[in-house]
């Protein structure tokens, strides 16, 4: 039973399209998080002074603090963006593919 469904899904071009679309999306998201995190770490490693720059003259808050909080928020948002799209668009397409294979 399962084997037959697998056989039909394998032959369905929509399945290949879904896999490559999801993979592309995952790779883009991973690259974004790598850039955000390692960008921040390398900035600290190579240019500490930049992060210590004050946000406003006379203030104490340095640029590094909103940037760091930004990385945390960016991480959370990116995760939700992926989950939203996977739970709606990708899952709907997968459902169609599975249904077609059961006919």
């Amino acid at each position: 039973m399962s084997q037959e469904i697998y056989q039909r899904i394998r032959g369905n071009p929509k399945f290949q399209a879904l896999v490559s679309k999801r993979n592309t999306f995952s790779v883009i998201m991973i690259i974004l998080i790598l850039i955000a995190y390692y960008g921040y770490i390398l900035l600290i490693a190579f240019d500490k002074a930049l992060l210590a720059t004050k946000l406003s003259a006379g203030g104490v808050t340095s640029i590094g603090i909103p940037m760091g909080l930004g990385v945390i928020l960016f991480t959370i948002i990116l995760t939700w963006v992926y989950v939203r799209r996977a739970n709606t668009e990708f899952d709907a397409e997968a459902d169609v593919i599975v249904k077609e294979s059961q006919q």
Partner: peptide, 18 residues
């Protein structure tokens, strides 16, 4: 402390995406 805590968070998107 902020730099340190960010490191502990960034593994989660990896789990999500992969």
């Amino acid at each position: 402390g902020l730099i340190f805590s960010i490191g502990w968070l960034v593994g989660w998107p990896v789990i999500t995406f992969l």
